[in-house]
């Protein structure tokens, strides 16, 4: 029996279908080429969409305990656990500030949730100005002034930003947590012991202004070898001051966060991946590292 061929006006059906497919492919190609050359479609858009999707997924609902830090908390270094805060009444929140002296990986992506710090106050010197400079945190969460020390931080004359002191800002804001990183500027001329005493007094002022706030004393960061060689912030003084800070914290019931070890390279100096050209200030990666470290250190049950 002869096969009956379907034909449309003398053209076989298969040919017609084939033509339609070819036309569709041509059409698609032409449209894509047009969009590409008019700049409405960039190859990187696709790459970025994938990256943003993965970042969003990682940060949005992942509990802190499952955010894998590059290094796990190590209780061996400090000799004793860093002090627990006086008030542990915040439901389900405990602070763990055990430090970790393992080598900081050269390059790492540190995730943190900006919303976690929404009600917190960061008090610091020029290094902390980068928190708003780079727009990691809004102005309301940062009290930072170039050159600030634990001594000038208590000063009505020298310790104001936008007309208010740090204590006044804390009194008004009543932050959930206060992170203080001060001391780098005083190393050259104030002396570690005196600065530690001033830091203690500063903390007392803050406690009085905002009694419910959890206070965290942050170790001052390391410096690069080149910067240390200039003599203003030798690394031995950085380490010595941090040691004194750590000792100061427990008796007065505040928490010590050893940021310094998180930013060091294997030789104990400021890791080049985090250090600005001057060997003292932070690259953006350092801020991310810091905020990530803070968040991970404050464990939520």
């Amino acid at each position: 029996m002869a096969a009956k061929k379907n034909k449309i006006d003398g053209i076989s059906l298969s040919i017609v279908i084939l033509n339609i497919l070819i036309v569709m492919v041509l059409l698609t190609l032409v449209v894509l080429i047009y969009l590409y050359f008019t700049g409405k479609l960039e190859p990187t858009d696709v790459a970025n969409m994938d990256q943003k999707a993965s970042e969003g997924a990682a940060m949005s609902t992942t509990p802190i305990s499952t955010v894998i830090p590059e290094t796990e908390p190590d209780t061996s270094d400090t000799g004793e656990a860093d002090t627990t805060p006086e008030e542990t009444g915040e439901p389900g929140e405990t602070e763990d500030t055990t430090s970790d002296n393992s080598t900081v990986p050269a390059v790492e992506t540190d995730e943190y949730d900006e919303a976690f710090f929404e009600n917190d106050l960061f008090i610091g010197d020029s290094i902390y100005t980068g928190l708003t400079g780079y727009e990691f945190l809004p102005d309301k969460n940062v009290f930072a002034k170039m050159g600030l020390t634990p001594e000038s931080g208590r000063s009505e004359e020298n310790g104001k930003v936008d007309g208010v002191t740090a204590v006044a800002k804390a009194k008004k804001m009543k932050p959930k947590r206060i992170f203080i990183m001060l001391g780098t500027n005083g190393l050259a001329y104030l002396g570690n012991t005196y600065m530690t005493e001033q830091m203690k007094l500063f903390i007392e002022d803050l406690k009085e202004a905002s009694p419910e706030s959890y206070i965290y004393v942050v170790a001052i960061p390391p410096v690069t070898k080149e910067h240390a060689s200039q003599g203003k912030q030798p690394i031995v003084m950085v380490n010595g001051y941090n040691k004194l800070l750590r000792s100061m914290c427990e008796p007065i019931g505040v928490v010590f966060l050893d940021l310094c070890s998180k930013l060091q390279d294997s030789s104990g100096y400021f890791d080049a991946n985090y250090a600005e050209a001057d060997g003292l200030h932070f690259k953006p990666a350092a801020y991310k590292r810091m905020l990530s470290f803070f968040q991970k250190s404050i464990k939520l049950n």
């Binding site: 053209i11 033509n19 032409v30």
Partner: peptide
Amino acid sequence: MKKRILAAMIASALMISAAACG
């Protein structure tokens, strides 16, 4: 027949190009 098919394809391609660039 083959000429018709070929003509149809060429015409389609021209039409599409005109529409896309229009």
